[in-house]
């Protein structure tokens, strides 16, 4: 009953074309991205290597001392498989220096801080290499708000923000992401033993089926129940989408003039490109 199977050749063509076109039109030839060892960034680095040439893609692995060592090994494996430039910048010194002043900080604060630390590094590497930061958040994460605002959600261009996790798996197979990366359990790897699905309370497969119907097809709750989705599941997911909407928007601006940015001062980002 899955409606989430797609033609991967066509999807690949569109996303590779997107990276090439949107990077090159701003007068840049390179991309930089964080490579976590997970599947999302692995897929993006494969697409970027195809679009820009592997020599023009800088992948940065940014482990913290509690990160699973397997993550860095997988990041290295992925970088080697697609031939991009690879470097490791540990974030332990910066993150620990900060939390020395706040030793009681919980996992969420620490996880968000790590994600934002990585963001600052990527944007600095962007300046270093003259490369645009490529985002690695998929549509499932973006809709659920399962990401850190101004952290892993920050980028210049996001090739996979309109494809669900289920599509990420399919496309990763098609472009040749190493099998061990495709098959392992998705994890933000912010603390030991964390997995996405455990933390979310449902599987990506299930939530993708629901989100596709809810968001893409705009089905009503009654239709979703008739399709076999539990009402509590629908409510939980709908609430997550609504409550995380702020993460998908620019900061709200108090309007006082006649022409306010993004309200009645409207231009495409590709203005003049």
């Amino acid at each position: 009953m899955s409606q989430l199977t797609v033609n991967t050749a066509l999807l690949r063509q569109i996303l590779v074309g997107f990276i090439r076109d949107e990077v090159c039109k701003v007068g840049v030839t390179k991309g930089v991205l964080g490579l976590s060892g997970g599947i999302d960034s692995a897929l993006v680095v494969f697409l970027a290597a195809e679009a820009l040439g592997p020599e023009n893609v800088h992948a940065v692995c940014m482990p913290y001392r509690t990160s699973n060592p397997q993550s860095e090994a997988h990041a290295r494996l992925v970088a080697e498989a697609c031939g991009v430039r690879f470097s490791v910048v540990p974030i332990t010194p910066m993150v620990d220096a900060y939390f020395d002043s706040f030793p009681d900080a919980d996992n969420m604060r620490r996880g968000n801080k790590m994600a934002r630390e990585r963001m600052t590094i990527l944007f600095d590497q962007s300046a270093l290499h003259g490369a645009l930061v490529l985002g690695t958040s998929n549509k499932t994460e973006l809709l659920l708000g399962y990401g850190t605002l101004y952290g892993d959600m920050a980028s210049a261009l996001n090739p996979i923000g309109d494809i669900y996790k289920s599509h990420v798996w399919q496309l990763s197979e098609a472009v040749g992401v190493p099998r061990e990366v495709i098959e392992k359990k998705p994890s933000a790897d912010l603390w030991d033993g964390q997995t996405d699905e455990q933390e979310l309370g449902f599987t990506y497969r299930d939530v993708d089926e629901l989100l596709y119907r809810l968001v893409d097809l705009r089905m009503t709750k009654a239709e979703l129940v008739a399709e076999g989705f539990a009402p509590e599941f629908i409510d939980t997911v709908s609430r997550k989408v609504q409550n995380s909407h702020f993460k998908r928007r620019l900061p709200v601006i108090a309007k006082v003039s006649n022409r306010t940015i993004d309200r009645d001062f409207r231009y495409s980002r590709d203005w003049g490109k």
Binding site: G17, F18, D21, E22, K25, D162, S268, R269, D270
Partner: peptide
């Protein structure tokens, strides 16, 4: 053809 703000 081409892309504008991610739209192909």
């Amino acid at each position: 053809v081409g892309y504008e703000d991610g739209v192909n």
